[in-house]
Amino acid sequence: MSNLQPIHARGVTRRYDGRAVVQDASLTLEPGKITALLGQSGAGKSTLLRLFAGLEPVDAGDISHGGIPVSTLSKHVPAEERQIGLIFQDFALFPHLNAIDNVGFGLTRQNRKERRESARHWLDRLGLSHRAKAYPHELSGGEQQRVSIARALAAQPIAILMDEPFSGLDVTLKSEVRRTALAAVTEAGIPALLVTHDASEAMRAADRVAVMSDGVILQEDTPEALYLKPVSMSVARALGPLRSVRRGALPENWQSKVPPSETYCLRPEAVRLDPAGDAMLEVVAAQRTSSLIEIELKLTDTETIHALALGPFTPKAGDKLAVSLAPEFVFTAPQTATA
């Protein structure tokens, strides 16, 4: 059976004390693709990861790799036989081994020379060849996490499952560590699952995103489709900030740019500062957040919208700004049971 095979979960359920923590969840992990599982604490994300890994049995449904069942009600292949790499927030490195020996530790089917060559290759791929002889206590958090990922990939797993792997890293290091690590994971060509509560991380890192809440996968699609065409308000809110606005509150010349609806949801990118803009709106408040300026603009006495802007100057409350509407970032409020 080739390593480059998809892993399918179909209608899987897991119960604790009679309560479904994962309920009728279906998700496919494709070779060479990163799928992000996004949701808040208690959504069931880590439990679904554990079902994929074989750390827990399913109470309903099935999981298969390359068409071969590995988890059903009557069959459960244990985790140690699934050849799946697991990465957690806790790096779990051996403190008495240096980086290269940590990476090569599990390569028991190779002789010493082959182990060293394989470990060195993956350290180099993760940008750590110069730290091969460093011990865990001598490595930064980002370096330790990259060693952990190098160790998982060196074992040539059929898939790699990552549970909040970057959440413990300093914010200034997280982006670069994540970029380097996930590029190596993608290059390995195997299915990968990234569990996260961070919508920005999910959209930035993954090819596809599944939004999970209360044990249920609400929607699974590309980051762009989820962001602009959510099937419920729960999904819409999970992917980032938005503001609901009545049609009558929008400037009249904007109403013709969007489909008829009583209510609209606007992403911050929908309203843009534009010297040639077709509306003048008053600033309620503005705040710089690093490179971006978040601006709250007055529509009516009771309704406001948000805008994002780039520039060296933060506007003041009471300023009047020319703005335009980008209708591609406006969608009608989904009317579903999970709204």
Results as ranks from 00 to 15, higher is better:
K113V: 13
A60D: 14
E117C: 04
H121T: 12
L55C: 03
S129I: 10
A309D: 14
G168D: 07
R14K: 15
A205M: 14
A333L: 14
P241S: 14
D170A: 10
G11Y: 02
L266R: 00
R204G: 06
Q219W: 09
N3E: 06
R267G: 01
T263G: 01
A92M: 12
V245F: 02
F331L: 11
A276I: 06
I190W: 08
Q5D: 02
E56Q: 12
L51K: 00
D62W: 10
G215Q: 12
V177Y: 01
V330Q: 04
L228N: 03
Q335P: 00
N253K: 13
S129G: 12
P31C: 05
L126F: 03
A279M: 06
N98R: 13
V70Q: 11
L38K: 06
V195K: 10
T186W: 00
I87H: 03
A192P: 06
K133C: 00
S74R: 12
E176P: 00
H76G: 06
R179C: 07
G168T: 00
S71E: 12
S118N: 09
L194K: 11
A317T: 15
V195A: 02
D278M: 05
G39I: 06
A181W: 07
G142T: 07
I149K: 04
G61C: 10
Q156K: 15
F313L: 12
A159E: 03
A337L: 14
A9Y: 01
S41K: 05
G277E: 05
N3S: 10
E303H: 07
R50W: 04
V70K: 01
A92D: 07
A36F: 07
A79T: 13
E176V: 12
V330H: 01
E282R: 13
E143Q: 15
I68N: 12
V70P: 04
L218E: 15
G318I: 05
E294T: 08
L38Y: 04
E30Q: 15
P268G: 10
P327S: 12
A20N: 11
L239F: 09
K320W: 12
S118R: 15
A119G: 03
A205S: 15
T336Q: 14
G104L: 08
A337M: 13
Q5I: 05
L169C: 08
A184Y: 03
R267D: 02
E81I: 00
H65S: 07
T72S: 14
A307P: 05
A322L: 11
A25G: 04
V216D: 10
E81Y: 04
L325W: 03
I100S: 11
A53P: 04
L107M: 09
V22W: 08
H65T: 09
I63Y: 01
D221E: 15
A43N: 08
G11F: 03
H130A: 15
A236W: 03
D301L: 15
L193V: 07
E252N: 10
D207T: 08
A60W: 01
A20L: 09
Q110M: 15
S290Q: 14
P312Y: 02
I160A: 08
G104P: 03
V70N: 00
L4N: 07
